[in-house]
Write a protein that binds this DNA or RNA. Structure first.
Lengths: 136, 136
DNA sequence: GCTTGACCTTGACATGATGGGAAGGTGCAC
DNA sequence: GTGCACCTTCCCATCATGTCAAGGTCAAGC
């Protein structure tokens, strides 16, 4: 199976398959006489695994660990759970920061006329850092 | 005022001040005879403006627009509000995606023993893409 | 005056995950 | 045997920021 077909089958772009190989996330693919990479069912499983983990937002480093655990029959599920929970915590923290920013900005936006007049609490906040006080 | 003092005063690192200058976000700083950059009160205001906008998650491109509006006395507050609301929408979309991932992962994690046994629905989901069905 | 240490200068390189493109080789169908 | 789709490697770009290196400058203490 060619890299293009493998990409099609797994949803990982050919570009990224080569990249994952270059950083050692996946083993080096076999080659045809002409140097074309070839992929078998096992490789496809690994690539699909990676794509699903990426879809869940895991970093490459985390995926590296998850792949090792996946291929380790003597693994402890606790190790997997720990990685997943850590990732969940990271995502929640990101959400919290986003929520804070959204909150501030929505508040400012609600007090902005949004018409042709130039006065705007959003710019005032950015300029002075104390629009909150000025406005509420 | 030196770049280091300006950085200290505004919370924008010296590195980033030079960077912002190089990409044309701020005007070129004045120089001493020895080539040191110098900053005045107006520059400090601009840098503080940028830092606050960055703290609210605005991209450099958006900040470029906001700065232009800030310095335009004939601006329409509607233009500012539009940029802010667009940014809020982007952040909300990011939060939505994060929430989805968190939801899936917390669900899987809840069904993982997290002990020394090897069986783990998290890995099963990543491997097969159908843990949801297998589990619930 | 000289040394020292803190600061400045430019420039290059790194991050993380991905995309884009160029230049050249290969495989297959007509 | 030609054309087209695909493959190869390699370089560059993103985005905002940090790090490091090599060298110049300033001010204070001796």
């Amino acid at each position: 199976m060619n890299i293009g077909e493998a990409a099609e089958a797994t949803g990982v772009s050919a570009k990224m398959i080569r990249h994952y190989e270059s950083i050692g996330l996946i083993r080096e693919a076999g080659r045809t006489g002409a140097g074309y990479r070839t992929y078998g069912p096992k490789d496809l499983s690994t690539l699909s695994f990676i794509r699903r983990a990426r879809d869940l937002g895991f970093s490459i480093a985390q995926i590296r660990d998850l792949l090792a655990l996946w291929q380790d029959r003597a693994r402890a599920s606790g190790d997997v759970k720990r990685i997943a929970n850590q990732h969940v915590d990271e995502m929640k923290e990101k959400m919290r920061l986003l929520q804070e920013m959204v909150h501030t900005l929505e508040h400012l936006s609600a007090h902005c006329h949004g018409d042709d007049r130039p006065d705007c609490p959003i710019l005032e906040q950015l300029a002075s850092g104390k629009a909150e006080e000025a406005c509420c």
